[in-house]
């Protein structure tokens, strides 16, 4: 009995801690001033939201651009990561250890370590300040996650089914669409969610490669956060976390069961 109460209390504390930092953001987004020592704003206002949704603010444009970049990065990463993951998950070969190291390093080595050099490389290629350049840069941390997740998916994949389909006369593309893809889809969704989120939250790579021209939501958010407009900051922050939450809810059914958590695929 005491154990149960303790667990409940710990659970409550944990839940509170998980949502707590988001609470002031939500309150600020509808506050008209909120100064010490007021526990709640004395005046409420929809101004911050009105500004965020006004065409001149560019916030919605920024949201659209961020969605586009994250989606494109995810699709490209899937095209590259599925075959690579298959190679790592299904096959044993000489040098696999070093190959694995090379494929995961870009996700672990901090972005700042490559951003400076990458800026030099992309400048010469005319890729700085372009959406394409930013997507390429985002692929650096995203491909490793996608590859790792797909490798773990393929390691429990049964290739006999593919062989059977082929022996029944299916062409490779048919085999992939009708047999392989359905089998790896739940894992692929996990990988896609992860890839999307990693691209979605990039700040430094977008700032350095996009040079400010590619104005994704974190950059807009940062500008307001560093200028003391807490109400606008709150509104943009809420807008910024919404897509992730929606995608999580949408993909929740793919994440249940054996592959319960997206992090579980990556870590260990």
């Amino acid at each position: 009995m005491r154990g149960n109460a303790l667990r409940l209390f710990a659970g409550l504390a944990l839940a509170l801690w998980l949502v707590l930092p988001l609470v002031p953001l939500a309150i600020w987004s509808v506050a008209h001033g909120w100064r010490f020592p007021d526990l709640l704003p004395q005046q409420w206002s929809g101004n911050a939201w009105a500004y965020a949704f006004s065409p001149g603010s560019g916030v919605l444009e920024s949201l659209g651009l961020t969605v586009f970049i994250a989606t494109a990065t995810t699709v490209l990463a899937a095209l590259v990561g599925v075959p690579a993951g298959r190679a790592l998950g299904l096959h044993e070969f000489r040098g696999k250890g070093i190959v694995t190291l090379i494929l995961i390093a870009p996700a672990i080595v901090p972005g700042i370590a490559v951003a400076l050099g990458l800026h030099g490389v992309f400048l010469r290629l005319g890729l700085t300040g372009t959406v394409g350049g930013v997507i390429l840069a985002h692929l650096i941390p995203v491909i490793p996650y996608m590859t790792l997740i797909m490798a773990s998916v393929f390691s429990s994949f049964d290739t006999d089914v593919e062989a059977q389909a082929r022996s029944l006369g299916a062409r490779p593309v048919q085999v992939f669409i009708h047999v392989t893809l359905p089998a790896i889809l739940p894992g692929l969704m996990t990988g896609a969610l992860f890839a999307f989120l990693v691209s979605w939250s990039q700040y430094l790579l977008t700032l350095s490669i996009g040079g400010g021209r590619v104005q994704t939501l974190p950059l807009t958010l940062f500008t307001f956060a560093t200028s003391g407009r807490n109400d606008v900051t709150g509104a943009i922050a809420i807008l910024y976390i919404l897509p992730g939450v929606l995608i999580l809810l949408f993909t929740a059914r793919h994440l249940t069961g054996r592959n319960q958590s997206l992090a579980a695929r990556v870590g260990a």
Partner: peptide
């Protein structure tokens, strides 16, 4: 849910 929240948002919070 927490995994989907970008670090910048957490920092401001």
């Amino acid at each position: 849910l927490n995994l989907t929240v970008p670090h910048v948002v957490g920092a401001i919070g």
